[in-house]
Design a protein around this nucleic acid. Sequence first.
RNA 1: GCCGAAGUGGCGGAAUUGGUAGACGCGCUAGGUUCAGGGUCUAGUGGGCGCAAGUCCGUGCGAGUUCGAGUCUCGCCUUCGGCACCA
Length: 864
Amino acid sequence: MGEFRTMKYDPQILESKWQAFWEKEGLFKSTEDPSKEKYYLLEMFPYPSGRIHIGHVRNYTIGDVVARYMRMRGKNVLHPMGWDAFGMPAENAAIENNTHPAKWTFDNIAAMKKQLKRMGFSYDWDRELATCDPAYYRWEQLVFLKMYEKGLAYKKKTHVNWCESCQSVLANEQVEDGCCWRHTDREVTIKEMDSWFLKITEYADEILDYCQRLPGWPERVLTMQKNWIGKSYGAIIRFPMDGSDEVIDTFTTRQDTVFGATFLCFAPEHPLVKEIVKGLPQEKKVTDFVERTLKMDSYMRTADFTAKEGVFSGRYCINPVTEEKIPIFVANFVLFEYGTGAIMAVPTHDQRDFEFAKKYGLKLRVVIQNPDGNLDEETMAEAYVGEGTLVNSGPFNGQQNLAALDNIAEYLESKGMGHKTENFRIRDWGISRQRYWGAPIPVIYCDRCGTVPVPQDDLPVVLPLDLDMRPNGGSPLPFEPSFYKTTCPECKGDARRETDTMDTFVESSWYFDRYTCPDYHEGPLDPERVDYWMPVDQYIGGIEHAILHLLYSRFYTRVLKDFGYLKVREPFTKLLTQGMVCKETQECETHGLLYPYEVKEGLCVHCQTPVKTGNTVKMSKSKRNVVDPQDLIDQYGADTLRMFCLFASPPDRDLEWSDQGVEGSYRFVNRLWRLVVDHLEGLQAVGSYEGEGGLSEPLEALHRKTHQTIKKVTSDIENRFHFNTAIAAIMELVNEINQFLNSNEEKDQIAWSVIREAVTSVVVLLFPVVPHITEELQSMLGLDQSLVETPWPEHSEEALKEQKRLVVLQVNGKLRSKIEVPASYGKDEIEAEALADERIQRFTEGKAIKKVIVVQKKLVNVVV
RNA sequence: GCCGAAGUGGCGGAAUUGGUAGACGCGCUAGGUUCAGGGUCUAGUGGGCGCAAGUCCGUGCGAGUUCGAGUCUCGCCUUCGGCACCA
C-alpha cells in the first residue's frame, strides 16, 4: 500500500523534497573562479507587489532554463535575484492599510520569495538585495555626489511633467501619450519646478553610437532607443533682431531653404518672448497667448490634430542671407525643449510653416524648384518637401538642394551667421520625486552657502522610518523637522535637507553590478568581483523597458566606468525581450468583466446568463483576465506550470494562456512519470547502451532518435532559445520510446539498454525545464548524481548515421513518390532508382524527360 | 503619416540554408480498458471529389523569379507594436 502511494506522481511532495535538497547542498551558490568561464544570467528584478504574477513566472522560467542549461555546460553561472523595493505603491498601500511602507515592502518580499522558491528557480539567494536597504542606496548617494562634483548631476528650475496621481514629477521617458506610464488614464501637466537632473545628454552620442555594437540586442529595442535619442544633423542660424543688438538662434536641418525663410517663430516658453514684447501694443495679446498655450496639457498642445496657432510679436528680425526684414511670431507648435526653442519658418518647403503662413497671410518664396519646374508660390496648395534645384538663393542658385546643405552651412559660418551642428531629441533625466519611499537626494540647502552636498563621510542620508504617512498622500518628509532640519556642512548654521527622493530607476540602473558583491562595504563595488562577472551575458525581461530602464542603465554604466568603478561600458551583452502573457476577456451583460473563477461552463456565476468572450489581450487585473500562479502551483505543481510557459510559444512572442494547454502539459509530465515508473524493473536491470553495436533495426532507430533529439534540443536552446521546439522534440522521443515498449519487439538486455539510454537522455534534457520530476526520476533510475551537477549530453555522430535514406520523388515539382535508398548511393544511382520507380514512370509515361534534378540524399525532381 | 514585426488547419504553433507544408500539443471523432464519471490506451483528423486506389486545391491577396516558393522579388490588404508638429 505504502509503495503504491509513492508510485503516484505527486508534485507537491516531490517538488518540495528537491527544493530542500538543492538548498541544503547549496547547489546554486556561485563563487568567483577565474579558471572557469563565467556566465552571468539575469532576469529583471521584480517590484515587491506581494504576489508573483504570470508574467514573472514566464520571465523567470525562461531564465531558469538558461541558467540550469549553462551550468550543465560547465559554465560558472551567476543567477541572482532581488527586489526593486522603493516606489509609490508601498506608500499608497501603507495609507490604505494603516501600516508603514517598509513593513508592507518587507512582508511582500517575504511572500514573493516564498513563491519564487516554490517555483524551483535556481537563484543564489545569498546575493539577494533590496534597493530600499541603506546599505544599497548609500552607494547610489555617493555616486550622486560624484556626479554633482563633475557637473553630471545638476539642479534647475524648468518645465517638468507632473502626474497628479503620483503627486510627483516624471522624467520624459516616463510619459506615454501624454499620460503617466503608471497611470495611463492620468494626463500629465506641465509645472515649473526646481528639479535635479542627471546629464544623460552628455553620453547621448556614445550611447547611440554603441547601438551598432550590440548585436545581441533585438533590433526593435535598438530602434526605439535610437528614435528616443533622436540625433539630427543641421545648423544653427543666427537672426539679428531689427532695431536691437539681440540675436535669435534657430536650429534647422534644412539650411538649404534659408533663403526662403520669411518669418520666425518662438516657442511660448522662450525667455526672449517676454523681453522683446515689453512696452509694445502687442504685449498683452502675446502674454495672453503664452499663458493660454502653457495651460494646455502637453499632450493636447503637441497633438497633430491641434491647429497651428500663433500671434505676431510686433517685432522683426533680419534674414541673414537675404537681409530682408521678417516678422517674429510666437507659435504653439514650436517646442521649447527641442533645438533652440526658435525656428526659421520656410512656408514653401515645410508643411507646418505653410499652414501657419496661409492662416496669417504671410509671404511665401519658393527656393527649391521641383524637377517639373512648375512650382509657384501663388498656386501651390501644400509645401514642397522633395528634392530639387535651388532658386532665389543668391550664390547657390542651380545647386541640388541636398548637395547645397554643406555649402550653405559653410557660407553661414564664414559670415558669422551660424554654424553646422548636431541636435538631440533626448533631454536630461529628471530624477527628483516628491515622494517619501525612495532614496534621499544627499543635498543640503543653506541660506548663506547655497546648495551644499552632504559630505561623503556623512553618508548614508537614511530615510527615516519612524514617521507617519500623510492621510491624503504626499511625502511626509517636508513636514518632518527631525529629517529636514540640519546644519550646513560648510558654515555650521541652520540649514534644510533636500526632501525629494530619487527616481527608482536610479536604483535599477546598477543593481546588476551590486549582485556581484552585495556584501561589499568599502565602496559601491568590489573591483575584483565586479570585473569577473560583468557584463551580464544574457539579460531577460519585458519590452516595456526598452527606453526606460535599459537606456538609463546604459547611461549609468558609463558613468560608473568613467568613475573607475567598472571596466565595462555596456551592461548587457545579449538581451531577450519576452512577450506578454495574454488571455481572452469574459464579460457578462449585467455583471461586466468577469474573473475566470466567476465563469462556470460558459455561464456567469452570479446570474447564470451566457458569458461573452472578448479579445485576447495582455493579462491584467483591470481586464480581469488573470490567472493566479499560486492556484496553478497548488493544482498542478511548478513543473507543469514551467512546462506550459515554455511550450506554448517561443519566448519572444506573446503567449496565449490556455487552461487546456496547461492540462496538456500536466498530462505529458504524468506520461513521463509513468514511462519510468511503469518500466522500472527493466530499466534498473541494465546500464545505458553506449554504442557498442549489434542492434536490430528498430533498436538502431531508437538509438538514432535519441541522438537526433540531443542534437536538436542542444541547438534549439543554444542558438535560438526556442524551448517550444526543444520540448516538442523530446515529446517525439518519448512517443517513440512508448511505441517501442508497446510493440512486439523482443525486450532483451540489449533492448533495455537502448531504452535506458533514451529514457535517461529524456530525463537529462528535460531537467532545465522540469527540474523536480527529472531529479526524482534520475534517482529512481539509480543515478546518484544530482542533475544540477550532471553534464549536458553530447550527441554521437556515429549514432546519427543511417543505413538508408528517404528520398522524395517529384514530377514537375509535385510530390509523386518516396523511395528508400542505401545511404551510400551517389547522385547517379539515386537518379536511376528514381526513374525506375513505378509511380514516377506512370507520371512521365509518353512524355520527354527534359531535366532531372537530384538533391543529394533528399529529393529528385523529374521535369517533363 | 513614418518605421518595424507578423498573417500557416477548429486552436497554440512547427518547417533553422529555396527542397515531403501542418512536427509537437490542444480540441474533435471512433474504438478498447469487459465500460458511472474521470483517467488511460489505440486509430483517425487541412479542404473538395471518390466505395476505393486515387486525384485536384491549399501557407492574407495579386503578379514575378525558379526544375521547385510558407521561405526570395515587386505591388496591395489586414493585425499588432513603436514613433509622430523634432524644424
